[in-house]
Design a protein around this nucleic acid. Structure first.
Lengths: 200, 200
DNA sequence: GTCTATATTGTGATAGAC
DNA sequence: GTCTATCACAATATAGAC
């Protein structure tokens, strides 16, 4: 069984919107990518905005859902740290365009993100209590869990967001060198976080 | 002496392009912001693209120039780490819109960034030799300087890029709480990096 | 140099045949 | 459901008066 027209459109829209963002994307390009014509886009989804909204919310939801799961697992503290970094980077490897796409939209329309986020919630409570507990036991330095999460995500996401800059500045344009660098990130970030938590 | 029309336009263009990006920005909006009319924009700068190019390269150049200085100073290793984080965050506090703007453009037109970057170069060599030296003396863990720089920048930049998300997810929409969080970042990031470098 | 008015083009959206 | 042809409008760009 072959994929439905609606499915073709959504897949094409994901690609094009992710590359260009809402404003720069062209309905014609989406139609071409899907192998149909513009009129059908409007037949299935009323307008460009509607189509975008749908695609963006779906993508963002999947992304947020992924992190949620990783932070919420009921496993020992250090395993969770490692699992989060591994899992988060795995998602990024599979969707390297995604952070740039989300940032672009955050920048264009912050209000939308806020309203979207308010409907869901990231359960950081469990993680938080684990940290205070480990710190109380003297197993780790006392740290603010929010900062810890932001640190992990920032280190994971940045090389994907800034790919062309890193490529030019650090790797002299070599895709190969950039790729090797990315491969090292999992271990590097885990080491950085864990070493920073150890007590001297 | 009051500012020239050309200066007014450039300032207005910076604001509007930074908020909206190239495609979503409107010449009318720039004209309004500058207190003149559309025709003058084309009189001074031939086209929207030309104006954008000019503004973007200027902004990016200033940004890159700032980091360059911070990494290149001939001061002791730990002072440089701290100075870089402090200095980089200072730049971000003064231009909080900037990371989002740059990311947006990276995503829209990666090739431009590459060609721009190739004309300049970030001197990481001095920093690199400092690290290998400190590691050889047993003062710090052996680390890859490129990863270290990426870690620092990622942790600095992320909360600015993801402001609306953090705001919604971590601070329940409170601007005040977000602001306090940012204020803590300098110390947090410095501690994270320095602790991670210590040998246990 | 600065303006108003207008030309031109690109693109989202619709009408209507099949 | 899918297409071709067309509309309607918004936005860049230019002409030309002052």
């Amino acid at each position: 069984m072959s994929i439905s027209t609606e499915g073709l459109i959504l897949e094409a829209a994901r690609k094009v919107f992710a590359r260009k963002g809402l404003e720069a994307a062209r309905m014609q390009e989406i139609a071409d990518e899907a192998g149909i014509n513009k009129a059908l886009l409007h037949y299935y989804f009323r307008s460009k905005e509607k189509l975008f909204e749908l695609v963006f919310r779906e993508v963002l939801g999947k992304f947020i859902g992924g992190m949620k799961g990783l932070l919420n697992e009921d496993i020992p503290f250090f395993s969770k740290i490692e699992g989060f970094i591994d899992g988060y980077l795995d998602i990024l490897f599979q969707n390297p365009y995604l952070p740039g796409f989300i940032v672009m939209e955050i920048h264009r329309n912050p209000a939308e993100i806020v309203s979207f986020m308010e409907s869901r919630d990231i359960p950081i409570k469990l993680f938080e209590s684990q940290i205070t507990e480990e710190a109380a036991r003297g197993n780790i330095r006392a740290v603010d869990p929010r900062h810890l999460v932001v640190n992990m995500i920032g280190m994971c996401v940045f090389p994907f967001i800034a790919k062309p800059i890193l490529n030019a500045v650090l790797f002299g344009g070599s895709q190969e060198a950039y790729r090797r660098f990315l491969d090292e990130r999992k271990e590097t970030i885990k080491a950085t976080i864990i070493e920073s938590l150890k007590i001297k």
